[in-house]
Design a protein around this nucleic acid. Structure first.
Lengths: 327, 327
DNA sequence: ATGAAAGCGCTAACAA
DNA sequence: TTGTTAGCGCTTTCAT
């Protein structure tokens, strides 16, 4: 296997100094344009690729951004990861993705491991206790996604506005008995969604019953059918589309028509999932969050911590066919 | 921001030489056990983490494995990526995942970029022309996933055996008119599945019609409804579950019962997707492939190319409720 | 069993 | 505009 040439070899072949070769890539404006061309041409021809490790060691800044997610197989994350990687490319950064399994210990270990080789960390849906987050922020350049801890830099993929809008819409259509079917315990998203529905309904006289499908699976939603229907709801708002799908099938099995008798609203707008009739849902700004996260951590001195700020990216209501007038 | 100590600082504090600290991690058997303990304890306490860049530069082997996939958002890949990362951890390797968008140029650039910082490359569903693959294999330590190029090291996530079994089963149930609804053009999986169905049906007198939904989307499958049904099939075998789902809804819309009048078989066994009745499908060994891929590239000298070999991991037929006697 | 020293490939003062 | 030189943090002979 033929290995790529080093900067020194290239320099010798060209009869210039190593610094000249280096500068042709890192500070071309310091060189005579024709020198830059000559070096770059030779580099391209010989297949020279700068060694990231040597560069990182020399400059002290690894052009790497660590991205930690609880579960890469959760369909919410891949679009975010993609967007982060595309954005990082623009500034020559590499995104190192790691998966914690939603496990706190694993998350801690992953943070340790990635810290050592990244200039910044982006942590999604962190399960770390609040005090540890604060401590972490003080020592590392870190940005949180979907974790709303005061005094930290964070970006939230919010469904507040569109969900409030959906709830108001249901109210306008005459709905009075609501059920919120929540998802995993301790999730910021679940808390936000539940809170939004509760706040919007407060003082309207409408009744809200809440329950939770901790696993978030379709099967468990089916199992919880009786519970969901016990309050004879006219509208069901689900934590996400998978649960909403389960709710629809519970309804279907009992001959309850959607949206004729009961309206259903999902969240996440997972396109892979196609229900009959098409589910009204909320499209989240996951990709935008990934992009913004990278842009945020890439600016400024790597030796400085990120300025604490809270950015909430509002999703969009996608009105389809599962919401109708109460009747 | 307090930065992690280096090996030299740690050595000074302990009153030993840098080599001793280094050896406590890389070659503890050369040291007196009590020295090892002392160093490790101090390291843990001071939060010492070896600098991967320095290590990679010094040893010449970056303990990094590049994993290139066409689309991280394709539900087939995340489980594979997860498994690869978990396995890589065992040997202290890091998996660097990159996404090519299914674009050949981007794939080439990604290969260049990752080669420079990885000891091996695992490339899934490569779109590169055959001759370039050969050239690449000669220069880099690379393993292919789902790309069946002779003379290369490759692992194939196969559905041949289970799909042949499903086809035979349909034959036994009296089916005679089959339709294969294919997926993306040029995909190895699609070719294998189509080929398996065709080979199994050959000489049985059964009739096979084939078409393709290049986008692989649910909506486009719906649109192709007339085409799919034009041959009045009694059994439809779909490239994947998304297409199978579309086929089922096409059937549903026209009042054709499943499996009463038409049987349907999917592939991939995407659990997120739950059809009515439950879809008979084929579970693929994606995670196993990710694990095996890492184990394969991790062994041996990094300066040597991988020995060409073809490993096919057979999936499993999951018989559910969409296959029945021809009626 | 441990230390001293060289060097991995690159960048960044400092010189020229 | 270009060259020289000294590290970056670590591993690894070679000494001791």
């Amino acid at each position: 296997m033929k290995k790529a040439p080093t900067i020194v070899e290239l320099a010798q072949e060209l009869g210039v100094s190593p610094s000249t070769v280096s500068r042709a890539f890192t500070a071309p404006r310091l060189l005579k344009p024709e020198t830059v061309d000559r070096v770059r041409a030779a580099a391209a021809e010989r297949g020279y690729v700068p060694n990231v490790h040597a560069r990182a060691l020399s400059t002290g800044v690894p052009r790497t951004i660590g991205l930690i997610v609880p579960d890469i197989a959760n369909p919410f994350f891949p679009p975010m990861i993609r967007a982060a990687q595309r954005t990082a490319e623009e500034t020559g950064h590499t995104v190192l993705v790691a998966d914690t399994d939603g496990d706190v210990d694993r998350e801690k270990r992953t943070i340790e491991r990635l810290s050592a080789q990244s200039e910044s960390l982006i942590i999604a849906s962190s399960r770390l206790p609040g005090d540890q987050l604060a401590e972490l922020t003080a020592r590392r350049r870190v940005l949180f996604l979907n974790r709303d801890e005061p005094e930290t830099a964070r970006i939230l993929v919010s469904s507040r506005d569109p969900l409030a809008r959906a709830t108001v819409r249901l109210l306008e259509l005459g709905h009075t008995r609501f059920v919120y079917v929540g998802g995993p315990e301790g999730s910021w998203s679940d808390a936000e969604r539940h809170g939004t529905v509760a706040e919007t309904l407060a003082g309207t006289g409408a009744q809200l019953t809440s329950l939770r499908i901790p696993s978030g699976t379709y099967d468990d939603t089916l199992t919880a059918g009786d519970l969901i229907l016990s309050g004879a709801p006219t509208a069901v708002i689900a934590f996400d589309d998978v649960i909403a799908h389960g709710v629809m099938d519970v309804l279907l099995h009992r001959g309850i028509s959607v949206p004729g008798q009961v309206s259903v609203v999902g969240c996440d707008d997972t396109i892979a999932l196609t229900t009959q009739p098409p589910l009204t849902s909320i499209a989240l700004k996951a990709a935008e969050a990934g992009e913004l996260a990278v842009r945020t951590v890439v600016v400024g001195q790597v030796s400085e911590m990120l300025t604490p700020q809270r950015i909430a990216l509002q999703g969009e209501l996608r009105e389809r066919a599962t919401v109708g007038r109460v009747g």
